[in-house]
Amino acid sequence: MSFGPFLLLAVLEGTVMAAVLALTSVGLSLVFGVMRVVNVAHGEFYMLGAILAWFVTYYLPFPPALAWVAALIIAPLVVAAIAALADTFVLKRLNYAPEATIVATIGLLYMVQQAALTIYGPDARPVAAPFEWRIQLPWFGYSGYKLFVVGAAGVILAAVWLFMTRSTAGLVMRATQIDRDTAQCFGINVDRVYAGTFALGAALAAAAAVLIVPIQQAHYLMGHDPLLLSFIVVIIGGLGSIRGTLVAALVIGLSDGIISMFFSPTLAKIIATLLVALVLVFRPQGLFGARA
């Protein structure tokens, strides 16, 4: 393949990956930003979203497009409810102590994963995309649905951004993020803010999964890789900064495709992982670390 089309494909794939990364990371970033909680179970909320999408599309007697839309509504709601319960019964009782919550969310990770294995089983199962549309270019074909994912990611992220900056709930969340105690003095119910934030973060992960599952498959171990990748994005972007997270997703998504063309992909992953560690050591505010 000549260089032009090669680059075009790399850019297309990079953009899709950036959208996927941004979708999976923004919830993690939000939770860390407002609650200062590193949610190791984030990837499992993502997995739950994908599996629920499978259940919904499999059992609802709708045409694929409608069933998928139903999944996009139902899965995030269910996952948000589970997350809110986890927050109320576990994280809150730990007073959100950072280290205890990491241990607790590791525990949640195992519980959710194994529950999925018991209920859903070990198979990877496909979820039909809401539409089948293949773009045939002169050099290669490309999935039209993947481009739709990019657009949908843009819409969701814009909605989150508007919610955080324009709505009262967003204002309350930002106030809690900046100073929890003062917020409490102004009559903000911090417990509810925290539960809501945790649920929102989980819902975002689930929504991302419903969007992504037609181009992958629903599998009970699928939460592991998005978790690591989200960590990488959130750290490079600056923990807790939503804008930084988006920039980082774009940079990593676009560069990853190109880097792995030149190095062995495993080597590329090693370098990326070490880079993340070094960024945390030498630039803890992240590479794009404007505070959100």
């Binding site: 205890a100 241990v103 607790a104 519980m111 194994q114 018991t118």
Partner: peptide, 18 residues
């Protein structure tokens, strides 16, 4: 008794920190 013995590990972790 169960396939999901890692569930027990997870529950132990959560129970312990709590």
């Amino acid at each position: 008794y169960t396939d999901a013995y890692l569930f027990v590990v997870g529950a132990a972790l959560v129970g312990l920190v709590l």
